[in-house]
Amino acid sequence: MQRFLPLVVVLALVVLFLAMMLSDRNPKEIKSVIVGREAPAFSLPGLKDATATITDADLKSGQPILVNFFASWCVPCRAEHEHLMELARERHIPIIGIAYKDDPEKARAFLEELGDPYMVTANDADGRTGIDWGVSGVPETFVIDGKGIVRYRHWGPVVDGNIEAKVMPAIEGAR
């Protein structure tokens, strides 16, 4: 029967490829393991007031909240900034900012120059919290529901089309 073995392997591979091709997936998208789970615990100093402490308890506010990792050295962060401003000002969505591996001085200057969309801003100077959250680069944005469960992870800048197509539905779904 071993002469049928190659044929069986080939057929199994064809089925595998077909299934993966027809399933609506983008292999370039890196999936997050924390979606659907409770947001990873963290405790960070504030960016503007270094004596304040911001923790994961701040996420459990009873309503959906965005967590946005940013840095002053990151160009796409500048691109998404005005959209974050709009989300915060016009649509009244609370956003927690986390300055990722950034000089606090420069991060503060960044917010002064472009405006501050954040309810509170934490300072993740060594990037430890970023690692716990599985951040692969800035900007990255997470939608957290009222119970502190991560509902959606957005990789890259939150701009034009993405807001209506992905971020807003995730927020509505988290309500």
């Binding site: 002469r3 049928f4 190659p6 044929l7 080939v10 057929l11 064809v14 490829f17 077909l18 091709m21 027809l22």
Partner: peptide
């Protein structure tokens, strides 16, 4: 996707066909 499906079909035909032929004729 259309290209992917076409080439997969061709792959299945060529490799699957030759492996079938092999299973039949190898003895």
């Amino acid at each position: 996707p259309a290209r992917g499906v076409f080439i997969l079909g061709f792959l299945a035909f060529v490799i699957g066909g030759s492996m079938t032929l092999y299973a039949w004729r190898a003895p």
